[in-house]
């Protein structure tokens, strides 16, 4: 299969066309790979949302989420992002009805700090102190979250 595709590609002389074909294939492959994580995250988030755990989570985290001007349910998305990745955040976000400003705040917090296990490994691989960068990202995520949470409305 792979060989056939390579032969087929060798016959095409347009670099743009090859890029289009490779891109489409890679896009489909990556989508399948990501969905294997996103769908379970989404299903678990919907379960949590309707379970008795949710009111309890909301009680505990509503003061923390208030710092970011977010509703307490947002904690589910924010925490999913630490352990999975941006795609986990999006899957978790889609379990709730958030406004554009709220989604933007969650996005900015999680874009600053996400997939801690994977990205710490990357940091170590290129010789950066993973622990220091972890601390740096936590601080930045909090600062960015507060900033966008309270000023985001101006920017939208």
């Amino acid at each position: 299969m792979k060989e056939k595709y390579a032969n087929f590609k060798a016959g095409i002389h347009s670099r743009l066309l090859v890029a289009l074909m490779d891109g489409t294939l890679k896009g489909l492959k990556t989508a399948v790979m990501l969905l294997k994580i996103m769908i379970p995250v989404y299903l678990i988030v919907v379960l949590i949302k309707y379970s008795p755990v949710m009111p309890w989570l909301q009680d505990i985290f509503s003061p923390v989420m208030k710092i970011f001007n977010l509703p307490s349910e947002a904690v589910v998305a924010v925490v999913s992002g630490f352990f999975t990745d941006e795609y986990g955040v999006v899957a978790a976000l889609s379990g709730f009805d958030f406004t554009m400003a709220e989604i933007t705040t969650v996005a900015m917090i999680n874009l600053t700090m996400h997939s801690i296990p994977v990205e710490s490994a990357i940091a170590r691989k290129i010789g950066l102190p993973a622990g220091k960068f972890f601390a740096f990202r936590v601080c930045m995520a909090v600062l960015v979250g507060i900033m966008i949470g309270w000023m985001g409305g101006v920017l939208l």
Binding site: R15, L16, V18, A19, L20, D22, G23, T24, L25, K26, G27, L28, T30, A31, L34, L35, M38, I39, Y42, L43, V46, Y87, V90, A91, S94, G95
Partner: peptide
Amino acid sequence: EMLDGSISTVLNLLKVMVPLMILTEVLMT
């Protein structure tokens, strides 16, 4: 809700990944 949400997750992801990978390939080419 799980069924509807899963279907829209799949569709939305395809809307992101396919154009993204094409763009990445073009940028590299």
